[in-house]
Amino acid sequence: MSNFINKLWGSKSKASKTVTFGDSSFVNAPGGRIWTFISIATLILLWVLSSIFEWVKPIYWPPIQDVWSQFLVISSEGFRNSTLLEHVAASVGRVLAGFLLGCLIGIPLGFALALSKTMNRIFDPIVEFLRPMPPLALIPLVILWLGIGESAKIFLLFLASVWILALAARSGAMSTNLSKVHAAYTLNASKRQILFHVILPNALPEIFTGMRVAIGVCWGTVVAAELVAAESGLGMMVMVASKFLSTDIVVLGVILISLIAYVIDIFMRYLERRFVPWRGKAKH
């Protein structure tokens, strides 16, 4: 029991550090989750209290029980001919498709920018020009090019992620210590082997950071992407509900989007620990 409490509070080890500010090793360390629990519980409690005492008008922020009952209704009866699960599946599918396409194009593009002078000179201005362009502003064009089907939505999500991934891969590849590349050349490695055994693993930590940012941005963009004549999807659900001032459905949709994004991020962090265990541990 005391062991459990220690785990929850984050036991103070015997060799306590005196300098803790500026030392971020706690971020990935276990323990101390009690504070996470308290912070979430407090938010929910505030919401419950405000629902009970009607501190806020429902049109501004819905009572928790309304959101819960919408959740039950949409789960069983659906919203606009699709159940909640179908909405979730539609959005998750689009986000993952756009994100994976972004990886497929963005990561090689970033490597090309970092590894080939010619490619850098050709593509750098294009990337820098397209990067700040908000995908939302391109919606009319994307509809003209790709119609109003799935591909248009996926393309918008692709646009939201591809530049982030390209820049992450570029910066990761550029951070390769030249000694490592030199060493690999003297150790029989071909260019191709250096790419896959030296540059790629060296860039992985930054690529993972880029992937986490990109997938977050994709979730932020999915609402906009589903403005394009979507028949299902959490974003579409939120958009339609907001037109009818159904704030309970809006809030339900937003919470679900955040929750799913959070779960995916936890999964990404797991992958990062699994595939980049050396992150932050290299001395130089």
Binding site: S179, K180, Y185, T186, L187, H197, P201, W278, H284
Partner: peptide, 18 residues
């Protein structure tokens, strides 16, 4: 050009930490 005939040991940082 570099050749496996001529090996090199660097001051530090040339090991593959992955």
């Amino acid at each position: 050009g570099p050749s496996p005939q001529r090996g090199m040991v660097f001051q530090q940082g040339a090991l593959f930490e992955w």
